[in-house]
Design a protein around this nucleic acid. Structure first.
Lengths: 139, 139
DNA sequence: AGGTTTGATCATGAACAAGTGATATTTGAA
DNA sequence: TTCAAATATCACTTGTTCATGATCAAACCT
């Protein structure tokens, strides 16, 4: 469903969001807690910063924090820098322009499901998942 | 959502299923009608044959036919040889074993959507999509 | 039997995703 | 002011997907 990189991004953002006090969390600590290669996660975090999801602080006791309160960050925003979510990628059969006027063979039935996927990513927020609890590590 | 190869498989199977009389359709004709590289499609069709979705006939006026009536082929069967559909790939965050007992942070909310994706692929048949009409070509 | 049509297979390469290691750059604190 | 901690980059390796071209093998037709 998501690329591995986007999964990493989700898990990292959620762990940052869970940090009591919201204080900066270092990438090394995130990488270890999540079981993700450190340098790889570093690049992912950097892109999340440039996308306005996280803010980074350099230097000692630096790290990453949420750029906004968690209830104002939809999951689609976390995932979008990495994956083309079903915003436009509606068509199950890969047609570039698939719509009600020029539908593919699966359009009518798939549309219903795709719309719910889109709704999930657009309307679920980081704060929602923080509230739910659940595991973020590899196991 | 699906790999390009799985998209090719779906489109090819549907076009075969539409063939009046069910007579064999050659891979070259399929490739041209669908706008898919010929040799690449050839391998895809071969795997669909080994998976029991299509049967192939060699020699003159050979080609591919459905191995069973279209209403007995669920979409999941067409896609499964190529992609790991959300049969087990439930977890949005990529955890290997994610379930109600050991849920990830997204489990509770994502489960609802994932179940509908699974239902779509398990319960929609090739015949359903043939009946709906719609385009199969690249445009 | 021979040739043509067709699927089956092999070898190769481009593009991209994922992962690794090393280095530069900024910043706070001793 | 110097050092150490942390992010920011760079260069490179590996593996997978997608694609292309060439060749092999089976079946049908004359």
């Amino acid at each position: 469903m998501l690329s591995r990189t986007a999964e990493y991004a989700m898990r990292a953002v959620l762990l940052v969001a869970r940090e009591p006090g919201g204080g900066p969390v270092g990438s090394a600590r995130l990488a270890e807690a999540l079981g993700i290669p450190r340098n790889y996660l570093s690049k992912t975090l950097h892109l999340l910063g440039r996308s306005g999801i996280l803010v980074s602080t350099r230097g000692k006791s630096g790290g990453f924090q949420l750029a906004r309160p968690g209830d104002q960050i939809a999951l689609i925003e976390v995932v979008a820098p990495f994956d083309d979510l079903p915003s436009k990628r509606y068509c199950l059969l890969g047609r570039r322009a698939c719509n009600d006027q020029s539908p593919c063979a699966a359009h009518g039935r798939w549309k219903v499901v795709a719309e719910q996927i889109g709704e999930f990513f657009r309307e679920t927020t980081v704060a929602d998942l923080v509230k739910d609890g659940g595991r973020l590590g590899r196991v």
